[in-house]
Simulated assay, not measured.
Amino acid sequence: MAQHSSPTARPNWIAGGLSTIWLIIIGVPIISMIVWGLTTERAFRDAGPLAIPTVWTFDNVTEIIDRGFLGYYWNTAIITVASIALSLVLALPAAYAIVRSRSWLASASFRMFLLGLAIPAQAVIIPLYLIITEMGLYDTLIAVILPTVAFTLPLVILILSGALRDVPRDVYEAMTLDGAGSFRMLVNAVIPIARGSISAVCIFVGLNAWNSFIFPLIFIRSEENTVVTLGLRQFQQEFAVDIPGLMMAVLISAIPVFLLYLFARRWLIAGLAGAGGR
């Protein structure tokens, strides 16, 4: 019998060329940040940003520690973890009620949360400031956690509602016949099935909390509650900017975000695309 050889796939030069261009656009700034972060401020000013540094040093890392960035990282980590936990505690029951309930109140609540997607934080920052001040939360980490959760909650509920709608109705009916209540059904059936979207939500909220700038800028004043994004301003002087120190601080602050996205990007993309937990 004659064997038919499969046709050789032709390389897609256009896609390869565009991917290379995109890689250069993304890679050049990152490489520049690494190079600038490993040189001294004097060498950077003498040689300029386009020259290859002749002096390499890790003193910028020591300077970052001396400026108190470890405390900034700790505050940012607290805000990030608390925002993720509070978002899940509020969004999971809300999404479950929206999906399972047939009342008009659940439908109206879902539309109200969707309306929150159209409200930018900058538009309500003055009322938020007055509320935070009247509650006695100004210059505390809670003053950053609560607005962060509030402005991520609409999208979180939207993602989780889509994931819970993908849960087979047979699962709900089987657990109802077994005498399971709403809480047990949520914990034992819904959460394990929708764990992909829950992971995507955690990543989304974590990225927003870690990179938050406007809320810490408005609601935090003291040094002990400063976060990483505010700490970066220390490298900006009145008439100059310490570029090498700033680049090293940005690199170190981006490491947790990079690792989080690197190991969980599949869940993030799947969850935001509406793939649910399956």
Rank of each mutant, 00 (worst) to 15 (best):
T148K: 10
S107I: 06
Q237L: 15
A189G: 14
I191V: 14
I203P: 04
N211I: 13
G231W: 01
W56Y: 08
P192R: 11
G162Y: 03
T140P: 03
D139A: 06
M175G: 14
F258E: 09
N208F: 12
R221V: 11
A77Y: 06
R111A: 11
I79L: 09
A97G: 07
I255S: 12
A275R: 08
R278P: 15
F69I: 06
G196H: 03
L207D: 07
A106M: 00
F219I: 02
L177H: 06
P120W: 05
L230C: 08
L272R: 08
P53G: 04
I64G: 02
G179M: 01
S212K: 12
T57H: 01
G37A: 00
I26S: 15
I119A: 03
R111W: 07
L92K: 00
L259F: 13
L88I: 05
I24Q: 04
A77N: 10
R42F: 04
M175Y: 15
D66Q: 12
A2F: 09
R102K: 15
V89G: 05
A118F: 13
L160E: 08
V201F: 13
A275I: 02
F213A: 02
F110A: 05
G71C: 05
L164Q: 08
Q237T: 14
V241T: 15
A150S: 11
I203F: 02
I125T: 05
W36D: 11
I191Y: 04
R195V: 08
L230E: 06
P49I: 06
V250F: 00
T57L: 03
I79T: 02
I193L: 05
